[in-house]
């Protein structure tokens, strides 16, 4: 029979498990920021907590709250959030060998398919380590993201009027930080540039909400040009 400390040591000895756990801890700090911003944008604490539990995909959560905070209508918020959630479907398609066989555990595993768990799983070579990396990272991010959101909601409740604190700048600055890792790839850079131009051109022409949705044309354009080559 292994003691608790022996088990912990065994867990910690696997680099993929250790890294996955620590990544979740780091993502937890983003969860705190999400909670603070959501509450300051007029989302109730309960709603912010439910968003993290049920949506569990950061960029979409920030996008929905960001659009709502600037007075955007619900359909624009939903559209922007879902465009950003679509990539999780592509991750899920590539994770079939990682998914458990039981129906119930598959339903749970599906919720854990996000950027971090996919990236950690794909970085492994052996199938067993791939599975472990997925579960450890997914569960660690889930735990700390939701804990962080709860802390953020409690802290954010005391912040007060978001405009005096300049919190409306936090959303675009946060999106920028999320965008930067994508800019290393040439085609993603092109998609981002095209999306930005489309949004800028359509702001004066179309009702609020449309410019963000139409920015997705940047992805269509670059994917089409690439497939012709």
């Amino acid at each position: 029979m292994l003691t608790v400390s022996e088990r912990l040591k065994a867990f910690w000895s696997g680099r993929h498990r250790r890294d996955g756990f620590l990544l979740g801890l780091a993502v937890g700090t983003f969860g705190v920021t999400f909670g603070v911003l959501a509450v300051s944008a007029g989302v109730s604490g309960l709603q912010a907590v439910l968003m993290s539990l049920l949506m569990f995909t950061g960029a979409s959560q920030f996008a929905a709250v960001g659009v709502v905070s600037t007075g955007g209508d619900p359909m624009s918020a939903l559209g922007a959030a879902l465009l950003l959630a679509a990539r999780n479907g592509a991750y899920a398609l590539s994770m079939s060998e990682v998914m458990p066989s039981g129906r119930g555990s598959r339903l749970i595993a599906a919720q854990l398919i996000i950027d971090e768990s996919t990236a950690m799983a794909e970085a492994q070579v052996k199938l067993e380590e791939t599975r472990e990396a997925f579960w450890v990272t997914g569960l660690s991010v889930f735990f700390f993201w939701n804990l962080g959101t709860l802390i953020g909601v409690l802290v954010g409740g005391v912040v007060g009027d978001p405009l005096t604190w300049g919190l409306d700048a936090a959303f675009p600055a946060g999106f920028l930080a999320l965008l930067v890792p994508h800019l290393k790839d040439r085609n993603k850079r092109r998609a981002a540039a095209t999306g930005a131009v489309v949004a800028a051109v359509t702001i004066p022409l179309l009702p609020a909400g449309f410019p963000v949705l139409l920015a997705s044309l940047g992805a269509v354009a670059v994917a089409r040009i690439e497939s012709r080559k």
């Binding site: 996008a63 479907g89 994508h182 999306g195 702001i203 920015a215």
Partner: peptide, 26 residues
């Protein structure tokens, strides 16, 4: 490719709108 490029395209659209949209005007 489309799904891979969607995230950067929409994120940069969000950045532009939330930074420069002053009620339908840049």
């Amino acid at each position: 490719s489309f799904l891979a490029y969607l995230t950067p395209a929409v994120l940069s659209g969000l950045i532009v709108v939330q930074t420069f949209d002053g009620g339908g005007r840049l």
